[in-house]
Amino acid sequence: MTRGKRDGTPAEGAERTTAEAAAPGAACAGRRPGRPRNEALESTIIESVLDLLERDVPLADLSIERIAREAGVGKATVYRRWSGKTGLMLDVMRSLEEENPELSGESVRDDLVSLLEFLRRRGLAKRNSALMRTVITQAKAQPELWREYHETVVQARRDALLAVLRRGIASGEVRGDCDIEVLADLFAAPMLSRALLHEWKELPEGLAEQIVDTVLDGVRPRG
């Protein structure tokens, strides 16, 4: 087999063993311990998984061998970085994470719209939607995958929503006799339903405002 050059540049078609050596980063769940990171190569592998998901390939059919073939690397290259498919999928989910939108803190209504508009835009992104549907579908078969997704993505979004609702209750903009967890569901569920369960439905501009205003009308203090 053709070896790399003496200066460390990998030869064409090689396993990129030299290119794989880079400054180490924080270890993620499922990642092989002590393996130096090559972010470019890891990004290529993660992008390959996302491409397969976009083509509606089910998670059950995403073997390490198929992922490696799609990425143009050997199986050993993938296994050096992740102990298995679950660990790899956790990093795939992390790659699509975004920061929560910055909220003004002045209007509860406007902050709720900002949070729902963030969900709407994520729903319009085909990769995000495909990944979320895959995670939900595999939740029972892959409990670790669901837990990690919930802890790193879902809970952060929900905490931001709950914080706005608590502020609304304190300011008198939202009734205080409602279960705050139910309130959060009333705001988020319509958008998530369209994005995840009824992906054929449109997510038009103005939908976030429509949902927020409709729910707020029912949960404002009486009298």
Rank of each mutant, 00 (worst) to 15 (best):
G74L: 08
E99V: 03
T137G: 04
L197P: 09
C28H: 12
S107W: 08
V174Y: 02
L90N: 02
A19V: 03
R222Q: 14
D51E: 15
A19P: 01
G84T: 05
V153N: 00
L197S: 14
V73K: 01
G25K: 15
L196D: 00
R66K: 08
Q138G: 09
A208K: 01
C28K: 12
P221G: 15
V212R: 00
R222V: 10
S83I: 08
V219L: 03
L62V: 07
K126G: 04
V78C: 05
E144W: 09
R127G: 03
I64L: 11
E39V: 13
R16H: 13
S171M: 13
R194Y: 02
G123C: 00
I211W: 01
V219D: 00
R121I: 13
L90S: 03
A40W: 09
P10A: 13
K201F: 12
V215P: 03
E199G: 12
G34P: 01
V49W: 14
R94D: 08
L119Q: 03
V57D: 04
I45E: 03
M132V: 05
V49M: 10
E39G: 05
A21C: 13
K201I: 11
W200L: 14
T17P: 03
A189K: 11
T44Y: 02
S171E: 15
T44P: 00
L124E: 12
G8N: 09
V174I: 15
A19D: 03
D91K: 11
G8V: 14
M93N: 05
R175M: 10
A40L: 10
V113K: 00
S104Q: 14
A130S: 10
T18R: 06
L116I: 13
R81M: 15
K126V: 07
E97S: 06
R220G: 05
K140I: 11
L116A: 04
T134N: 06
R127P: 01
R122F: 15
D185G: 06
P24K: 05
D111G: 04
E209R: 06
A26K: 09
N128D: 06
V219Y: 02
G172A: 02
W200K: 12
F187I: 05
M1K: 07
R37I: 09
G72W: 14
I136C: 05
E98K: 15
L197E: 14
T137R: 14
S43A: 09
V212E: 00
T44L: 11
S104R: 11
M1I: 15
S48Q: 07
N100V: 13
D51S: 14
